[in-house]
């Protein structure tokens, strides 16, 4: 039952204005990707797909898209590979420096990307590692362990510990128990984390900015073009990215809806500030 709070008309209008503020720039961006006169100029005129055609024949953009997909996939792998055990360790192991470990793992969630990027840049320089897509992968993977850890830790909290005991009790060793009981129960958290990490990595620019070698990721490619001036081609690629983001969020929600409430992204943000 929803509580009967007296409806306030000014508040509803105010909320509508905030929504307009959040959405107008995005809508304008999309509209102008079809504008024959290029970016700007009111009203938009000459509906065209010219910019999309231009975009699809632009080799450099598609190279960078490919690079970004590669980086995102590898970042998901690294973040899960270390994020899953990290969540398990935070949940069930006591070790010296655990609090420090927790704080440091989660720090990249809240820290401006420039600090993560620069500190890694110094590490790679001191270690004599040449900058390339690999360094970007290491950067994204490491920074996004935080997302994997919070998601999976939340999953572990909801998971009934006695199930693992039951499995051990029935003769399964630790590894069998992990594979047959723990992992299937964390499935939703893991898929959710992977989706989130993938999207965040595809968008990431602050860390990549410092760790970039020769090959560009998509955001850096766009960034480079922006410095040279705005072109409707960028509206077109942004529209496509927006469409993909929408698909990701829909997928994410359908996944969540099947498990339970859609409150979790919120909870995750709350958790991440509690270092």
């Amino acid at each position: 039952m929803e509580l009967q709070v007296k409806q306030s008309r000014p508040l509803a209008w105010y909320a509508a204005l905030v929504f307009a503020f959040l959405y107008l720039p995005i809508i304008i961006l999309i509209v102008y990707s079809f504008n024959g006169q290029g970016v700007g100029g009111f009203p938009p005129r000459d509906l065209t797909l010219k910019w999309y055609r231009l975009l699809f024949s632009d080799g450099a953009i598609w190279d960078s898209v490919w690079n970004s997909l590669l980086v995102a996939a590898a970042a998901v792998a690294i973040a899960l590979l270390f994020g899953i055990p990290a969540a398990l360790a935070l949940d069930r192991a006591e070790f010296p420096g655990k609090t420090l470990f927790r704080r440091i793992v989660l720090l990249p969630l809240i820290l401006p990307g420039i600090i993560t990027g620069l500190s890694l840049l110094m590490l790679f320089r001191e270690a004599g590692v040449k900058l390339s897509l690999i360094t970007i992968i290491l950067g994204h993977g490491t920074a996004l362990i935080s997302v994997a850890t919070t998601e999976i830790f939340a999953g572990l909290q909801k998971f009934e510990r006695a199930q693992e005991e039951a499995s051990l009790d029935l003769g399964a060793n630790y590894w069998q128990t992990f594979r047959r009981v723990t992992l299937p129960n964390l499935r939703l958290s893991i898929i959710g984390a992977a989706l989130l990490i993938f999207t965040l990595s595809m968008d990431e620019i602050a860390v990549s900015f410092f760790l970039i070698g020769r090959a560009n990721t998509l955001p850096l490619e766009i960034w480079g073009r922006l410095r040279r001036g705005i072109t409707p081609e960028i509206n077109a690629i942004s529209t496509i990215i927006f469409a993909f983001s929408l698909c990701a969020i829909v997928a994410w929600y359908r996944l969540r809806m099947r498990s339970e409430s859609g409150q979790e992204i919120t909870d995750e943000l709350l958790r991440s500030t509690k270092l």
Binding site: A162, E165, A166, L168, D169, G171, T177, P184
Partner: peptide, 18 residues
Amino acid sequence: PYKRRVNTVFQHYALFPH
């Protein structure tokens, strides 16, 4: 625990939901 010939019925049964 997995080597003991002892089995347990848990308080809330702990059946595997999957």
